[in-house]
Design a protein around this nucleic acid. Structure first.
Length: 314
RNA sequence: CGCGGGGUGGUGGAGCAGUACCACGCCAGGCUCAUAACCUGGAGGUCGCGGGUGCAAUUCCCGCCCCCGCAA
């Protein structure tokens, strides 16, 4: 870690970890709100070889010679953060909850940018839930943090349209850039005291849960449209999968086609490829991947696995 | 040493001790109003690389390279 003094009008500390956070940070770096310190999650072992991998935010911060701090516990880090006499904390998908004592450190408090129209979709997976529910509109909200998760009063909020084929990957990117712009608009007014935080309507709050790998498992008794929404929400991670011959079969891309069904999960022949029955219509896979194999087209897969026709996926 | 699957003609797969089979594609011919078409014939493979054990290895053993699923 280097200790270069970064020139900036304000002493801002940025908390963030993910690619969403990285995009926000990128915008801050190019502005007069360049953070003096970046706090991010510790490196985690990842990949088949368990290599220790730094989070996206750390990579960007180091590239810009901003000091990086990766505490395991924020409570323990309180003193260190307090010594910097911060003006403001900016938090975006950091991954850890900031304890009250930490939130209270900066002169202008801690603000959080959250990718939903709060009080809707509080919690860790707002983007996925907007897609899972088929929302046509979502957005970003900037709040003044309090000790409860995504609960503090709002400073600003802006809508973003969801497009037909948006996935978490594409929508996240859109929201991140949008959120960065919103942040740039909000920051000056907040620091100068022109914004009065606006209490959320807590009676309308909804909550998201952490997405796990198993959320990507397809329940063929659901409707084809619901499965399509799952695909949007769970792309690129954890993706959609089912099981065939005890092997994981990922459905990477597919089409929903109107068709009679009588046995959800059963594979039928459809034109020169195959399709899987759902509760109502059928799903025609385009790109799939069998456990241990590379991704391949449905046609190629069928060349070597004709026997899948008539079988039931679970 | 985290667990596991795999590398076979252009593509996807089966075989797993006696040098290879299936589907698709491709080439030639035929049939059809049409089709996810169909029929007949044909070309195309040093079975990832290097060793070892066998009368004999794509098939067994050892080492290496590459691809991938889980896990995180």
């Amino acid at each position: 870690m280097n200790n270069n003094k970064v020139k900036s009008e304000y002493n801002i500390i940025f908390f963030g970890t993910s690619t969403f956070a990285k995009i926000i940070l990128g915008t801050l770096i190019d502005s007069k709100y360049k953070p003096a310190l970046v706090v991010t999650a510790p490196d985690r072992p990842t990949g088949r070889k368990q290599e220790l991998t730094p989070p996206p935010v750390k990579i960007l911060a180091e590239k810009n010679k901003i000091p990086v701090f990766q505490p395991e516990s924020l409570k323990a880090a309180k003193n260190k953060l307090g010594k910097t006499e911060p003006d403001l904390f900016i938090v975006a998908e950091y991954g850890k909850i900031l304890p009250k004592e930490v939130i209270e450190l900066p002169k202008h408090g801690a603000i959080n940018i959250h990718a939903s129209l709060l009080p809707k979709y509080r919690g860790s997976s707002p983007i996925q839930f907007a897609l899972l529910h088929g929302d046509q509109v979502t957005g970003n909200t900037i709040i003044l943090m309090d000790e409860e998760m995504d609960h503090g009063p709002m400073l600003s909020q802006e809508m973003v349209e969801v497009e037909e084929n948006d996935t978490t990957e594409t929508l996240r990117k859109k929201l991140a850039y949008h959120g960065a712009r919103l942040l740039m608009k909000t920051l000056p007014d907040w620091i100068s005291g022109e914004i009065t935080p606006f209490e959320q309507d807590h009676s309308k709050a909804t909550y998201t849960k952490i997405i796990t790998r198993n959320d990507g498992k397809i329940d063929w008794t659901k409707s084809a449209d619901d499965i399509k929404k799952m695909w949007q929400a769970y792309t690129p991670w954890p993706g959609l999968f089912t099981f065939w011959k005890n092997k994981r079969l990922k459905i990477l891309t597919f089409e929903v086609v109107e068709h009679d069904v009588n046995n959800p999960g059963e594979v039928i022949r459809y034109k020169d490829v195959f399709a899987i029955q759902t509760q109502n219509n059928i799903i025609v896979p385009q790109k799939i991947q069998l456990e241990g194999k590379k991704p391949q087209g449905a046609k190629e897969f069928l060349n070597g696995h004709e026997e899948i026709i008539g079988m039931r996926l679970i």
